[in-house]
Amino acid sequence: MATVGLAPEANMNLLEIRNMDHYFGGLRAIHRFSIAIEPKEIVGLIGPNGAGKTTIFNLITGFYRPTVGEILFDGLPIHGKRPFVITQAGISRTFQNIRLFGEMTVLENIKVAHHHTRQYGLFSALLSSRRFWKCEEEIENHCLELLSMFGLRERAHERADSLPYGDQRRLEIARALATNPRLLLLDEPAAGMNPREAESLLDTIHELRDQFDLTILLIEHQMRVVMGVCERIKVLDFGETIAEGTPDQIQKNEQVIRAYLGEEAIR
């Protein structure tokens, strides 16, 4: 990817969504949603329950097809493509309700990400060829390295569903990174965490961005996390954007305070 300042085009956005609508049956879930995210930005998506945040993630990752509008990733349209194609293009995500491969080991969970980049064919696998072993070893080393970064290496051979909650969340992020994404979508990464854990998550998110050259879009309910980590925030209510801006601006925006935060002030 071209570095900032050198690219000739004005369009520098990694992700761009234009005027997207989505309907469930006759029910409008998303209305005229637009967003443009530049490389290496960290953007937050907030709003009350049922505002359509996760729906937007599902639209970006291809589980739903937008009724109207387009989604461009790195300048190319991705709406209507199947989720695995979008992952292969460089978008990865985590889920609000953790979706690990429960009966597989922690290590295997990560290894699944290497399926589409495998360097051996079906017959190599069936015959367990030399090439197969070599590639498997590379995959294993790569995955163990990633696990170490998340402090999960000791648990590499345990079943994923036997991990404590916090580790499961971290494993899911590690697994998402294993697909080598450029855009990472985090769906409530701090859900169920205490303030101290959430604090350390803030640091992790920043580190990840720098280390992996990531662009991050995240949904979060814990205001401390959102305000602490995001450079830009978009507020949704009933599928419509009601505000957009820096954390400071959002905190002062009256419409947001009324629609979303109620009378409670943000501390």
């Binding site: 990752t61 589980f63 199947r82 989720p83 695995f84 992952t87 292969q88 990865s92 995500r93 889920f95 979706r99 690990l100 491969f101 429960g102 009966e103 597989m104 295997e108 290894k111 699944v112 990400a113 399926h115 589409h116 980049t117 697994r175 998402a176 294993a178 697909t179």
Partner: peptide, 19 residues
């Protein structure tokens, strides 16, 4: 591993790039 991923959670398998 791709097979087992589908068995355990098809949606997550898809998001890991498995067709």
């Amino acid at each position: 591993r791709a097979s087992k991923a589908i068995r355990d959670n098809e949606i997550a398998a898809e998001i890991m790039g498995v067709n």
